[in-house]
Write a protein that binds this DNA or RNA. Sequence first.
DNA 1: ACGATGTTGATATTCATTATCGTCAAGGTA
DNA 2: TACCTTGACGATAATGAATATCAACATCGT
Lengths: 135, 135
Amino acid sequence: MESLGGAGLRSGGARSQVIDLLAQQSCCRSAQEICDELRQEGSAVGIASVYRALEALEGMGLVQKTDLGEGSRMYEPVIPGGDHHHHLVCESCGRITPFEDERLERAIHDLADGRKHTATVHEVVIRGNCSSCRS
Amino acid sequence: MESLGGAGLRSGGARSQVIDLLAQQSCCRSAQEICDELRQEGSAVGIASVYRALEALEGMGLVQKTDLGEGSRMYEPVIPGGDHHHHLVCESCGRITPFEDERLERAIHDLADGRKHTATVHEVVIRGNCSSCRS
DNA sequence: ACGATGTTGATATTCATTATCGTCAAGGTA
DNA sequence: TACCTTGACGATAATGAATATCAACATCGT
Ligand SMILES: [Mn+2]
Ligand SMILES: [Mn+2]
Ligand SMILES: [Zn+2]
Ligand SMILES: [Zn+2]
């Protein structure tokens, strides 16, 4: 939580608030959602600060920005060396289902290796209909 | 090319021009790029018509919309039952390298099956540094 | 010819993201 | 304590991609 450069945080403490809120999330949130939730809790966070915090965190590798193609980009915490997932998106109800798959991960890394390409981050989005929407 | 519902195409024929241009592409283009290229060829195509054509083609499964996270969405032709690829994006020089990988495809489809989720379309983006940028 | 329908290009609008700007907190120095 | 530098903050303006509107125009069936 405090693995930051301990720079002069101001009263509102936008950055740490974003960090705390993200740490509680298990899947992705949009910048606007994060801002709204913080304001509902009473904090006067500005949307600009949310974007600034997310950009900084992404640069440190603590947040993954993912684009599910639904208007706004999503952000989710990166547990270093832990749970890492991707997303199924239902084109009918919009539900987002995270999933983990070791076989998929290996295929991706082997592929990047074969192409002599680094794989800093990667993103997999599968679009279709969820089981509920098909019955 | 003329596999459309033979709807009343007008003289300018924005839609068919978009189709023709896309058919010549082997990888992705943005709507703005498509519009600019057509205008340089002398056609007075409007950006709105480009988006309309792309949306229609996507609905027919002839175009895949993909989001590489670089500001604008990209569109590429779908060869029915042919070449199907994904993208490596170099975070340093911006180069986009398409790749095909059967193992990855199988992993994705098996995964969707296991979750009882349809996989109409899927998208894989790998970000890192290309071989040129590492030497 | 006539009306219905669908297409087109320009333009207005929406909305996510980014850039600016004035303000303020924290830390260091004297 | 004053003074100053540095960086973070929130509001707001600006940018730009994607979408909605609208009037003009083809095409088709009558
Ligand atoms: Mn992964
Ligand atoms: Mn594929
Ligand atoms: Zn669903
Ligand atoms: Zn490169």
